[in-house]
Simulated assay, not measured.
Amino acid sequence: MGKAHAFAYRAALAAFPDIPVPRLEMIADVDQGLAAKAAHQYGFQRSSGHWRDLVNDPNVDVVSITTPNTLHREMALAAIAAGKHVHCEKPLSPSLAHSLEMVDAAEKAGVSTQVGFNYIKNPLLKLARDMIAAGELGEITGFRGIHAEDYMHDPESPYSWRIDPVGGPGVIADLGSHIIGMARFLLGPIAEVTADVRTVVASRPVARGAAERKDVLVDDVARILVNFGRGCGGTIEANWVATGRKMQLGFEISGEKGSLVFSQERLNELLFYKAGGDARTSGYVKIEAGPQHVPYGQFCIAGGHQLGFNDLKTIEIGEFLRGIGEGRVSGPDFREAYEIQKVVEAAIAASRSRSWVKIS
């Protein structure tokens, strides 16, 4: 993620010439050698082997946090205390209470924040949200969402920070936060949930090939039933042991007048079905991303030439910097990340109690 952020800060001005000019001032890594190498590779002016040097430097105005989850809170609070604007990768922190502490600190200090839910920066997802808001699907009747990958499907892959419970829950936070955030982006707040959250791989080796193993205490699969505040229901799945899947982040939204289907595996396509047509010729229409879908044209003047992951990250960073320049929230900010985390925590509680849990 550090590389993705570095790419995005370098590309943001080229795509969005109206934003404040980003100067790549300082980069920090786990030691000075790695930091110096990264500074050379990504074009930063200076480097440090300690993150505190970066957040306390008077020439740094914006801090990006791209570390494992357990470090987010300490780094963010230090940066906020130093008056910096903060971009932090998701999830915001392992603890809901600590996330709220980060929200309160940022809002009290008046700094801008953003959290790395870059998938919703896709111009086709913005189109989908606009179509829903305009009533093109009519009353929404259902949502089916999933984020499934397979990077943890091998039971011999080593125990790591991702499955250390000190860092919070497992896939429901790591991948689930993306599809929960996407659901909220498209349809608004989730009012209540019930869930089945389970561990599939019971233990993992402490290192690749090691005989010693550690018990896995976080979830590998989460299946959630949701009711939205707008009145419709739906399902959400998060799964990092879905063998063969690399990026199945997607949704199907059904409405009285039509439906929309999207998958990050084909992120430049949105499928739209309009009800009521001739039964002989009706079906899903493929909408291909192009310059008519802002800000696609900032990257390429020709439709069908495809945006990619790093372009979405560049859109995210460009919007963040523009928001700082204009003194407004660009989102998703710390507050929205906290709201997403409330759904995660409610789903875990619902799975334990085998009941419906309302989102406060």
Rank of each mutant, 00 (worst) to 15 (best):
T194A: 12
I172W: 05
E269V: 14
H50F: 12
P291S: 07
W51N: 02
F262T: 01
L267A: 04
R213G: 03
V201A: 09
A36W: 00
R184I: 13
L186V: 12
L77D: 03
A183L: 05
T194L: 02
G110W: 00
R335A: 15
I140R: 03
I348C: 13
A173E: 13
A109S: 05
R144C: 11
D219G: 04
E339K: 05
I287Y: 08
A133K: 10
P165A: 09
E136R: 07
G277S: 09
L307T: 11
P205V: 03
D61I: 03
R184M: 15
P58T: 00
H98Y: 12
N239F: 10
R280S: 14
G276I: 08
R10W: 05
A183G: 09
L92K: 05
G43L: 11
R280D: 14
L100T: 00
I317G: 04
D278R: 03
R204N: 07
V55P: 01
G229S: 14
S355T: 15
A211G: 00
V344Y: 12
H87R: 01
A106T: 02
G145M: 10
L307N: 04
I301Q: 08
K84H: 02
L187C: 15
E319Q: 10
L270Y: 11
N122E: 09
G327E: 13
Y273K: 11
F262C: 01
G318A: 14
N268P: 05
H87M: 13
M102E: 08
H5T: 03
G244Y: 06
H293C: 05
N310G: 01
K214A: 06
L249N: 10
R46E: 12
R198K: 12
H50R: 09
L13W: 09
A6W: 10
G276D: 12
G297A: 15
A347E: 11
E149G: 02
A78I: 00
F185W: 07
S47R: 01
A12I: 01
I179W: 05
I324E: 11
S177Y: 08
A14P: 01
G209V: 06
L13S: 11
N122A: 07
V111I: 14
P295M: 08
T66R: 00
F7P: 00
V30H: 04
P169W: 12
G331H: 11
A97D: 15
D31V: 04
V115E: 12
V55Y: 08
G255P: 07
I163H: 07
I27E: 06
H85W: 04
F16D: 14
A36M: 04
E288F: 06
R184Q: 15
A81V: 01
E107M: 01
